[in-house]
């Protein structure tokens, strides 16, 4: 394999978290019913400006994630448009019971915002990583699970979540996310085809879509392999229509996620494909069943091959 290129993030790239903060402020300008609820997470959620502009629409809970989700459910039950914001690791583990019962089972349409998701916290270690959230939450009925890949997806996901009549979980990370495509159409539950190709299909979600796109460009440049790249931002409900269309091409498929290889995007896709008679060669890339190595998010991605180079190598392997 030759030297790999590194595509620099484009100049307009912002962290999805910044887009979240800005979008919420825009929504709050016209929606006085919108509330942001935080668990000592307003700083890490980039929500200090929101609290300054809309002090009556920000509720502080303190370091109490169970109460965060319970209070959010109580607010939503009376018609408030509630965004409950907390690090994804705590929100989806410490408050799992409250998400299950108070939000989903009781159908209180809280917008659960898991910040600094996946391994965004890097060297803070496994206590602060959320590599279980897709798996755990997929088993809970009545929850839309979304990991936006770029700024466009993030803004649209927030706007669509704000209008949803059922609960939504959004997770995103801390780093600047380059725009993936000029096509800015986005619908929750509908995968976004970023690039079309007939040799290989790469399906990412959240922060793994961009390295998948880099890998696809490199494979075409160096090996004339044309890969389709999909941002499967909505993990549940999964876009089965798109999956079937992609699988019908009959070419190998690779899923890539910043999550345990157990129970996330890859296994969700595999379950659909195998039960519907598709027999494409198939690989799940993600974090293996172990405690992650110490390092930054980028270092952890590199260690586990969730990079341009790692994804391309896996693709060549699968195509060989």
């Amino acid at each position: 394999m030759g030297e790999l290129t590194t595509v620099a993030p484009n100049s307009t790239a912002q962290a999805n978290l910044d887009v979240f903060s800005a979008t919420l402020q825009q929504l709050a300008e016209t929606d006085r019913n919108l509330l942001v609820v935080t668990s000592d997470s307003r700083g890490s959620g980039k929500l200090v400006p929101f609290g300054q502009r809309f002090p009556k629409q920000h509720i502080e809970i303190g370091i109490a994630e169970q109460n965060l989700v319970g209070v959010a459910a109580g607010l939503a039950s009376t018609g408030k448009n509630v965004f409950a914001v907390s690090p994804a690791c705590f929100l989806t583990a410490r408050s799992f019971e409250q998400i299950k019962t108070d939000v989903c089972y009781s159908n209180n349409p809280v917008r659960l915002i898991g910040i600094s998701a996946g391994v965004s916290y890097g060297a803070l270690g496994s206590t602060h990583h959320s590599l279980h959230d897709f798996a755990a939450l997929r088993a809970v009925h009545n929850l839309t699970i979304v990991a936006p890949a770029d700024n466009v997806e993030t803004e649209q996901a927030i706007r669509q979540a704000a209008a949803s009549e059922t609960p939504v979980y959004l997770r995103f990370g801390k780093k600047a996310m380059p725009l993936l495509s000029d096509d800015q159409s986005f619908t929750l539950g509908k995968g976004r085809v970023i690039r079309d190709g007939h040799d290989l299909i790469l399906i990412g979600t959240g922060e793994t879509v961009y390295p998948a796109l880099q890998a696809a460009r490199w494979l075409e440049d160096r090996h004339r392999i044309k890969a389709t790249v999909v941002s499967m931002h909505t993990i549940k409900p999964l876009d089965y229509t798109l999956l079937a269309t992609l699988a019908a091409k009959g070419v190998p498929m690779i899923t890539v996620e910043e999550h345990s290889v157990f129970g996330g995007l890859g296994e969700a896709c595999a379950s659909f494909l195998i039960q519907n008679g598709y027999r494409n060669r198939f690989r799940i890339m993600g974090i293996p069943d172990e405690y992650t190595v110490t390092g930054s998010q980028a270092e952890i991605f590199t260690h586990y091959g969730l990079t341009e180079k790692g994804i391309a190598a896996e693709a060549l392997n699968l195509l060989a």
Binding site: L35, I59, G70, V71, G74, L75, S77, D102, Y105
Partner: peptide, 24 residues
């Protein structure tokens, strides 16, 4: 107004509803 059965959760929900009433 809420599913219950898993103990310890009702007070938080009631806090949310009471807060909403005050805000309204």
């Amino acid at each position: 107004r809420i599913a219950s059965g898993s103990l310890g959760q009702g007070l938080s929900v009631a806090c949310g509803a009471a807060l909403a009433k005050r805000l309204n």
